[in-house]
Design a protein around this nucleic acid. Structure first.
Lengths: 188, 188
DNA sequence: GAACATACGGAACATCTGTTCCGGTTGTCA
DNA sequence: TGACAACCGGAACAGATGTTCCGTATGTTC
């Protein structure tokens, strides 16, 4: 691979990260090319299609999240671990529009090459429930629903740190259970 | 107004409701015209612009919601009233994509002619807090954030009745307060 | 430094969008 | 029924989009 090609690839990825964060899936290839200081043709030399470029960025991001989830899977406080991870994803979502679009399944085929983020989250959930920090009647479906909801809203309404904290506090309280944990029986 | 014009206007509104519910703001005028069985020109005779057509539909919907909020403002159980209204909006959001797009401020200028939905919600919130059904440290900002989040997710992920109920249960529990209400002091 | 493959830029193409326009149709009223 | 205004359909326009293509420039190799 030629040196200038390598340099341009990096530039494109950098520019795409910025533009896609701002405009989401509706960002145009021209806008990315302009910010990167290259022609559109140059982008297409590296990424066969718009979706491929998106995937390159989103997958990288999800990968980093999955890594973080793995670390937290052995954290001393399982409840705090789950909530911290939840918060982390929402923070990411606030700044990165593509990321939310991708999570929402608005257009990207997320299956190809996407790491198993869901599995990682499930580990955190189960551990938190076993520790009694999360009510046992909450399943992955609800958790994902809440997570998705928070990400979408954080992005759409541009949550600041304060609002995010206060809103997620309500959600986390709900997850902990209005009622105190009854017994350490693992719910289905 | 000529009879056929009147008939066509009704057809357009009906078709727009369907198409906009399905495709949201990105729906095309051609799609609406086709379903309505008219030409695009006919739509533009009644609605000067795409946004005007959207507004006609969204405003009507918000109006009905605001009415419902007013009714609930005098309901016997203020806590239940707030939660029922919350649920009602989310149900609406699930089926109506435009509605969510509009709430999310994705493109429609919601100010013009839009009834004061926010004020109506605030009434419900304050009453619920005074009754001790909602923790006093929750403000309109968080409530709207949660509502917006639920609507966005319900729509994006196509929540069914069961998932909606279970997810909102968590949210409502969080709103009620993990901790029991301390004193009937009205929080700022 | 010459020669060649590789990569670049951006014009061009096909397709989509909202919107305008006008020849032909149709409802209305005398 | 006749005459006229109101209305209709959909082709046409202007602008955007993703993608392709090719003459030109540039990195690499000997």
């Amino acid at each position: 691979m030629r040196a200038d090609a390598q340099r341009n690839r990096a530039r494109v990825l950098e520019a795409a990260e910025v533009v896609l964060a701002r405009d989401g899936l509706s960002a145009s290839m021209r806008a990315i090319a302009e910010l990167a200081g290259v022609g559109v043709g140059t982008i297409y030399r590296q990424f066969p299609t718009k979706e491929a470029l998106y995937q390159a960025i989103v997958i990288d991001r999800v990968l980093r999240l999955a890594e973080r989830a793995e670390q937290l899977a052995t954290a001393p406080d399982p409840g705090e671990a789950l909530f911290e991870f939840f918060d982390r994803i929402v923070v990411d979502a606030t700044a990165k529009k593509v990321f939310v679009d991708a999570l929402a399944g608005a257009g990207i085929d997320a299956k190809a090459g996407m790491p198993d983020l869901k599995g990682a989250i499930e580990t955190l959930l189960v551990r938190a429930q076993q520790a009694g920090a999360v009510r046992p009647d909450v399943g992955m479906t609800e958790l994902i629903a809440l997570l998705s909801a928070a990400c979408l809203a954080a992005q759409h309404n541009n949550w600041d740190d304060d609002l995010r904290t206060r809103t997620l506090t309500v959600v986390f309280d709900g997850l902990s259970g209005g009622k105190p944990p009854l017994s350490p029986t693992t719910g289905a």
